[in-house]
């Protein structure tokens, strides 16, 4: 959990969550051990990686390429496996 801890008194009655989509603050990118790297020259911008991403982390940029948001990317490698042109490779994360 991100942020400070909250107690039961801070919860709404019935444990209702009032802010839709609030899980977006959580950084699932921390789980990643490999990151997807795209080669722009051969990419045909088909969007297959976008439609098959379980994290919904691949978004279109201004040039029409689909870029993974590394804040959420868990590094499953589905995009690299499914890319029809094979332009995505999974590169191991290294400690900074």
């Amino acid at each position: 959990m991100s942020g400070e801890k909250i107690g039961w008194k801070d919860l709404e009655i019935g444990a209702v969550v009032t802010e839709p989509g609030s899980a977006s603050v959580y950084k699932t990118g921390d789980w990643r051990s490999e990151r997807p790297v795209r080669e722009n020259e051969r990419c045909i911008k088909c969007g297959i990686c976008y439609i098959y991403c379980p994290e919904a982390c691949i978004e279109e940029d201004e040039e029409g390429y689909f870029e993974a948001n590394l804040y959420y990317c868990k590094g499953c490698g589905i995009c690299a496996h499914e890319c029809p042109r094979g332009v995505i490779t999974m590169v191991e994360e290294v400690e900074e």
């Binding site: 839709p20 989509g21 899980a23 977006s24 603050v25 959580y26 950084k27 699932t28 789980w31 379980p54 994290e55 919904a56 982390c57 948001n69 959420y72 868990k74 590094g75 499953c76 490698g77 589905i78």
Partner: peptide
């Protein structure tokens, strides 16, 4: 929304 805790893949 992204940020859900599903397993990888």
């Amino acid at each position: 929304a992204p940020g859900h805790r599903a397993c990888i893949g």
